[in-house]
Nucleic acid binder design. Sequence first.
DNA 1: GTAAGAAACTAACAATTGTTAGTTTTGTTT
DNA 2: AAACAAAACTAACAATTGTTAGTTTCTTAC
Lengths: 189, 189
Amino acid sequence: MRAESRKEEIINAASILFKEKGYSAVTMRDLAKAMGIKAASLYNHIQSKQEILATIIIDLAEMFTNGMNQIVNSDENTIQKLEKIIDLHIDVTLRNADGLASLNNDWMHLEEENLQYFEKMRQEYEENFRDIVKKGVARNEIKSFNIEIIVFSTLSTLRTLYLWYPKQRNIEAEMLKHDMVSVLLKGIV
Amino acid sequence: MRAESRKEEIINAASILFKEKGYSAVTMRDLAKAMGIKAASLYNHIQSKQEILATIIIDLAEMFTNGMNQIVNSDENTIQKLEKIIDLHIDVTLRNADGLASLNNDWMHLEEENLQYFEKMRQEYEENFRDIVKKGVARNEIKSFNIEIIVFSTLSTLRTLYLWYPKQRNIEAEMLKHDMVSVLLKGIV
DNA sequence: GTAAGAAACTAACAATTGTTAGTTTTGTTT
DNA sequence: AAACAAAACTAACAATTGTTAGTTTCTTAC
């Protein structure tokens, strides 16, 4: 396992604090205390509080974007693509559940270019998702409910995984993937 | 339509700002500007910033608690109860979508008694939900996937409605209820 | 038109914020 | 042991925060 750089340690500590109280409510003194140093010392490793937030969010958003691009460019059927999207969310959640809190709740505190970049990625992600569902309905692979409702309902669950999965001690990733596919696609009744 | 008191106007304006930036990032001067007055003038109507947050969140949490208690104490079957829970979330969302942002994202900034009261209500709500699903599985009204996954998945979608529904111009409440029941209970495949 | 309450205002406060400058300590390499 | 970089420190800053005190203005009822 690669040794973490001091900067990475700070970003990980920040992810946890941001998850607990949100970006705006966490002060640099809070973060320093969590690291066992003084606030001014943080600036030997990072440029600003904003840089921390941007690093957390943009890295994660790019993971989703890259994952979705691979899925879109594959020649699988709709159900297989949806299964891969579920896999993608579970994988990213397992890798960085703390950071996903910032992506979901604090993206609006990004500044200028990073905010625009993030919003563009998010919009394209949702459009790719919607197109997959739309084609699925057109090909009768998916029931023809309102498309927006299907997209919203599925995406809500996947986006909120970060809040829930870390609390579950006895659910394996494979079991989660399997049951999640079933629940989201085939229903519970 | 009943005339809004000045205090209610302030709380509604605060709900919108809290939704956009979160409780911690909204200053009393931001709120005053949105009301067209100076920050100090707010204190003729409210006691503190914290009181505003507590009012928004506790009122909504009590709506959910009361709604859930009615459902639990009814003698309907599992599917009917789940449908009523979906109805409840849609109704509360339609009534106060802005406030739900605070309930979902800023509850941890409540202080002392209100924080405890909220956490108690939330925990009981989730337990009631879980019990309904559990009974449904035991009676073979619901497929026997992992219960936690079913509860999490359904609740995630319902809790996130506030983010999504206000943006939909051409979805009627009745149509939303119908398709949401179908998607969540019967699946999309 | 005056009394009274509601609702706005100005001015200021003490505390906290992110950040910088300059200095000292720690740890490693020669 | 000397040299050097990494990483910590102290002290302070200008701006912003929620809130209070005291005062003025607006609205309504008699």
